[in-house]
Amino acid sequence: MKYLWLLIIPSFLIGHSIPFSEIIDFLPVQDGNIWVYSASSPSSENYFFIQVHKKDNSYYISNYFFSDEDFEIIKKDTQVFLSTEKEKFLLYDFEEGSIWHIPEGISVETPCIAGSFLGVTESNFEFSVVAGIFNNCIRILWDNPCKDAGIIEEVFAPNVGLIKRVENRIFGTFSYELVYANINGMTYGNASVSLYIGASPEFIFEKNLINIELKNNTNKELNLTFPTTQIFDIILENEQGEEVYKWSSGQQFLQVLTGRRVMPYSSLNLSVLVSFPKLEKGMYYLKVLIPASQINSIPIKKPLTTTITIYNP
């Protein structure tokens, strides 16, 4: 009788069924998708990142349980599977009324995941978080084997993904709320980290000077860790997407961990002199990359990147 609560769902929690032919994507998977969450506990507030990256022909999701684990993510209709080197297991089934079980003994480092029972208990409702107000959301409740720990519930928005998670901890309840996301090219909320190229196209070509600003939009300091002494890169591509200039080409960097700290509501500013080759007239794409491997000890799989379009007259 332990899991009977998942089987008896009050009728007022059930919305209209989602036609199976109109499958809604509640966990978008595309290379570079990123979600940023504010984690509030009884004693502190921190920020956590989830990111999707592509390797070969597979997609991987990092930090999904706010740990250092990477999982291959496999989707089939309304179902989402996570795969490790040892096994594949069903993590979600977003079809209304679904109930499922995560097997015990799976090789997941995060406690209280294995052995959990999950169910979709509410759908088609409006839900508000810092990143915005979302419609047609669904709620998933967890019944995990841990007495005073583990995920309690999650809320997902269509074409956005996880927007709210509540967890029990021994020392209180944690609430993770979406504050920013960049999903399939769409932006939601305000970025905790903003990257700007602060120069006009004419100024870039005439003065060969590029100003870079990495802005911390949060009330917490951000600590960036780089795998080498390289903390930025600049790439120029032509209209066909071919690389015609890369600042780091031919340069050598010390293979030592390097850190940069950005205080709350402050910026890391860099001014870089570049030496472009002789360029034909036309459209170009100027990219600035910040190749941090961690932000506040959370692994980042892809560099922070921004791009502007410039014209060489």
Rank of each mutant, 00 (worst) to 15 (best):
Y3D: 09
L6E: 02
P10K: 10
L13N: 15
I14E: 08
S17E: 15
I18W: 07
D25M: 03
N33T: 07
S38E: 15
S40Y: 01
P42N: 07
F49T: 10
V52S: 03
N57E: 14
S58W: 06
Y64S: 00
D70V: 07
D70M: 02
F71L: 08
F71C: 03
I73H: 05
K75E: 08
K75D: 06
K76M: 08
T78N: 14
Q79P: 03
V80S: 09
E96P: 00
I99R: 15
I99N: 10
P103R: 11
G105R: 08
I106P: 12
V108L: 05
C112H: 02
I113N: 10
S116A: 15
G119S: 15
V120P: 06
E122N: 10
S123I: 06
N124P: 00
V130P: 00
A131F: 09
A131M: 10
F134V: 06
C137L: 04
I138E: 03
R139T: 02
P145N: 12
P145M: 07
P145L: 12
D148T: 14
P158F: 09
L162C: 03
I170Q: 09
F171R: 14
A181I: 10
I183F: 05
G185W: 12
T187P: 00
G189N: 04
S194Y: 02
I197K: 04
I197C: 09
K207I: 00
N208P: 01
N216C: 05
N216G: 03
I234Y: 05
I235L: 15
E243D: 02
V244F: 06
Y245S: 06
W247Q: 03
V256R: 13
V256P: 02
L257G: 09
R261D: 03
Y265N: 11
S267A: 15
L268S: 10
S271P: 00
S271Y: 00
K278S: 11
K287R: 10
A292P: 01
Q294S: 07
P303D: 05
T305Q: 10
T305V: 13
Y311Q: 07
N312W: 04
P313V: 09
